[in-house]
Write a protein that binds this DNA or RNA. Sequence first.
DNA 1: ATGGTAGAGCATCTA
Length: 271
Amino acid sequence: MRFSLTTWNINSVRLRIDLVAKFLEEMQPDVLCLQETKCPDDAFPLKRFKQLGYDHVVLNGQKGYHGVAIVSKLPFESSDIRVFCNNLDSRHISVSFGEKAGMAVPLIVHDFYVPAGGDVPDPDVNAKFAHKLSFLDEMKTCEPLHPRGDARHILVGDLNVAPHENDVWSHKQMLKIVSHTPIECEKLLAVQSEGNWIDVARERIPLSEKIYTWWSYRAADWAASNRGRRLDHIWVSSALKDSIRDFTVTSDARGWERPSDHVPVTTVLEL
DNA sequence: ATGGTAGAGCATCTA
């Protein structure tokens, strides 16, 4: 079966529900993983998603900040929320698909919102940066993020790190900027290698080519300056490496009316 | 070297 999945840091799902609808109507992914919903669970716009054909929803929201959600055309078997850094921030949710979704072999999807880490890249003076580094360390040792053998897992989200030189507009000018410091890049790549994850973007697009999924709101003209970063990621377990059929960054979405600073990132797998 | 924007919810935090 053809299976498509999108990850998108929406920066308020309530404010941008019309943009989400526009995207879902055009792209029709089977599953959409959202971050920064900024929405308590009882205020989540469930009805709009149901109208769009996304009947199955799991939520880990909180008031004002953070928040993740997975909406799906396919029914789930189960869902789970994990706590990182002993902190109640809503930064993770996962689901499993199985027979209810027509899958004989289970598929697990993890949706993450890694802490941004503040401005100063020094854990001794910036507690937010220390939190980010600890969060990445915990992801590395988190047993459910170590798919083995034939296990079919997908890990997506706003991981808030652009790990490779061409994941940022200027490697040299970004070395001391949070999201591209060597310590963060090392730790994110350690999470990836510890779980034998395949970076779908770099499986499809060589390391020599620039890829961005985020452009700052603080640019006068985001497209003209094009100072982007690849903060949003789709990883698959090694068992799914040969199932990858497509990878798309919907950069157009950065130019939509009142956009998120992140754009949707989509993969298609043949399961 | 600096300051630049956006959202939630209503002062200030987070990004």
